[in-house]
């Protein structure tokens, strides 16, 4: 019997379902690149080359099967004094960052995300290992969240 980690009393805010599209497209590109990497095996005339290609693609497909759950597992919530963030199903990770610890907030948008109207928000503290990056936020929400975080950090400013 296995028990998953969870934090009691938190209703998680999830990321946009559209983020799935970016993830799937990214995986499709990965599959094409991996399949392309097996092309030289055909040129040397190796018998098992089709197996190599299909196992590479199969691996990506397996990964893709878990993607919807993985995306659903990403969550964040603004508590009174800190931001909590969770990620992962096989490798679960929970982080809590006090607002006063914020050094800066980054908003990144790739071409695909821009087309879908999504942004990625990165919360940076003085510790490199904090690693809070919330992907797949609706652009307007991300901007609002950034402004809110900056405002909260401003009111709870602390040193290092």
């Amino acid at each position: 019997m296995t028990t998953r980690l969870d934090l009691p009393g938190i209703t998680w805010r999830r990321v946009s379902p559209k983020f799935l599209i970016t993830e799937f497209l990214g995986l499709a590109v990965t599959a094409i690149v991996l399949a392309g990497a097996t092309a030289p095996l055909y040129l040397v005339g190796w018998d098992l080359a089709p197996w190599a290609t299909s196992s590479a693609v199969g691996f990506v497909l397996l990964f893709a099967a878990f993607t919807p759950r993985r995306v659903r597992a990403i969550g964040y919530q603004l508590r009174e004094d800190d931001l909590v963030f969770r990620r992962g199903i096989l490798f679960q990770r929970f982080v809590a960052v006090p607002y006063g610890r914020m050094q800066l907030v980054d908003i990144n948008r790739g071409p695909l995300s821009r087309w879908l109207g999504l942004s990625e928000l990165k919360f940076v503290t003085a510790a490199a290992s904090t690693g809070v990056t919330i992907p797949g936020l609706v652009a307007a929400d991300a901007d609002e969240l950034r402004d809110r975080l900056v405002e909260l950090a401003e009111s709870r400013r602390a040193g290092l």
Binding site: T2, T3, L90, F94, V95, V97
Partner: peptide, 17 residues
């Protein structure tokens, strides 16, 4: 001096609770 706190669990740790 704590910047943030995290907690993590992989498949092996989960098996062992």
């Amino acid at each position: 001096r704590v910047q943030s706190v995290s907690m993590a669990q992989g498949p092996i740790l989960r098996r062992l609770r």
